[in-house]
Design a protein around this nucleic acid. Structure first.
Lengths: 248, 248
DNA sequence: GAGCATTTGTGCGTATGTATG
DNA sequence: ACATACATACGCACAAATGCT
């Protein structure tokens, strides 16, 4: 295991700079230099204490500092990881996924996971102001930022009004574009309800997330400028990778 | 275990009303009558199928309907429970806990858990626009609706400006009232950041919630009408009992 | 599900260095 | 010189979470 990097086991003892601080700076420098990439696993505390020839407590002190600074994420029983940065997702009346992501200089991407036409459940029917059992077009779409899954959205459109949607979306996975083609050039998010729960196995799989990490669940109602309900969307956000931001 | 309630095993077969529907109505009636209280565990499907002398599938059909109506919550491997209703917590610039709760005809209550004066951590100091290490007053407060914990809030006030806060809060646990007494009759919530994670053991204990249930974590910045930062608040909401509502 | 190895979290005891008065 | 307080560092042991068999 000649790992290419210099031994770096040399710490200046009794020189006025605490050992743990030197270790913290060494690891910080490695992260800054890109030798350790976001999300990557760091060596175990035992390995680091061997490398720096110090006690594990000393390494721990350094790691605590790095965690406090938001550079690493420590998970009991799993290890320590270089922190990925969190995407801010602004919730506002004009929320559009791509814009929201691009504003942070990230690369948005959308993948349609499922399209189906199903009868409306009670809650959905009420929100859409149609009768229970009437057909709705269900569109499930995974949205990613820089290739990492951020949100899984399930949209419910009244089939009567948006019959062409499925065909349009298979061409281009942008919901906004598909709606424009259906005669809805603009829409507003009216209310958003937010809660959290653990993901189902499928959600965890699609979002590429541990089953023990919660998802933020949002329920939003979109209306067109005339006040007609366009769709009801259930969004499931990977809680570790997104922060919803509400500005007042 | 003679449980007082009549046997209720009599269903009308071949009378035009589906068995599962009769079962659903029977259970619904029990909940409505208050015989089964919110959060309480319902009999297992096996027990119910014995009681009504039907197949378990029939009971399941009834339970599915009840779940769809939001009356019960079915948890794989655990059982079924009478649904507690979810408090809607509106997030807006003028969010005040008591008003928010009272609007839904519930009884708000606040309990101060901890008051301390500590040096400001980096993130808090930045938000409060003071120097790191300057004293902040930390107030931890559990807020309840109808006696059920809803949110655990940790407030950080700059100690320089709000020195009298601790004394005021021990008299009256209302933050709004204490701030008014400190010369801040009004304040606005500027931004709220929302994420979710699993609770720490203490959070789970205070919120009276299972450790496997996530908490919604909000970080809010409150400012007075003059634009001065009043406090930074970290709120941890019991995800199963609250829904944050954002209106646009 | 039970058992096991791996990894981080916590507590205690000890020793030494450093700053203060 | 001395006492005190605090930060640093080490060693050992066990708890708790995770992942695998």
């Amino acid at each position: 295991m000649t790992d290419g990097t210099p031994p770096q086991g040399q710490l200046a003892r009794r020189q006025g700079v605490a050992l743990w601080r030197q270790i913290q700076q060494a690891i910080e420098a490695e992260i800054a230099a890109g030798q350790r990439k976001a999300g990557e696993r760091l060596p175990t505390e035992a390995e680091l204490s061997a490398r720096f020839a110090v006690n594990r407590h000393t390494v721990r002190r350094a790691m605590e500092e790095l965690e406090a600074r938001g550079l690493v994420r420590i998970e009991q029983g799993r290890g320590s990881f270089v922190a990925e940065d969190v995407v801010d997702y602004r919730l506002g009346p004009r929320t559009r996924f791509s814009e929201n992501i691009r504003r942070q200089n990230r690369d948005p991407e959308g993948r349609i996971v499922r399209i189906a036409e199903i009868p409306a459940e009670t809650a959905i029917a009420e929100a859409l102001r149609i009768r229970r059992g009437r057909p709705v077009i269900l569109v499930e779409r995974l949205a990613l930022a820089d290739g990492r899954p951020v949100v899984l959205g399930t949209h419910h459109f009244p089939a009567a009004r948006f019959a062409q949607l499925p065909a349009l979306l298979t061409e281009n996975p942008s919901i906004t574009a598909a709606l424009a083609a259906c005669g809805v050039p603009d829409y507003r998010r009216q209310v958003t309800r937010i809660t959290a729960r653990l993901p189902t196995p499928e959600e965890a799989e699609l979002l590429q997330q541990a089953r023990t990490r919660p998802v933020l669940v949002t329920e939003a109602l979109n209306v067109d400028p005339a006040g007609m309900v366009v769709d009801v969307t259930i969004g499931r956000y990977a809680a570790g990778r997104v922060q919803l931001v509400v500005e007042s």
